[in-house]
Amino acid sequence: MKIDPALVSKVAALASLELTDAERSAMAEQLTRIVDHFEALREIPDELLEGEEIPRAMPLRADAVDACLPIAVVEANAPEFAHGHFVVPRVVTRD
């Protein structure tokens, strides 16, 4: 399958990544080669795969309140923190 720079751009947007033109071209070429190689999975007959699923579902922990990190520890690692909150660029604006 051909992965062109336009498809790379679309996927990059989904992943919140910004690529330069050179990165986009290189990724398109490399991903095409990789995905072409992975087309080998089509050699496995569909009937062999019918009903196959991952046998072990991820277990879930109890939905209970547990100890969490002290605010000071969280703040120490935060790029920007104020009044007990992470600071981010304004999300809601008044038009």
Binding site: V8, M27, L31
Partner: peptide, 27 residues
């Protein structure tokens, strides 16, 4: 903007192989 913060942080912070694998997985 918040979207720009996400995008620019990730684009500058991840190296080429990590970007390649994120793109492959997202695809």
């Amino acid at each position: 903007s918040l979207a720009a913060l996400y995008r620019e942080t990730r684009s500058a912070g991840f190296g080429p192989e990590v970007k390649r694998r994120i793109l492959l997985g997202t695809f």
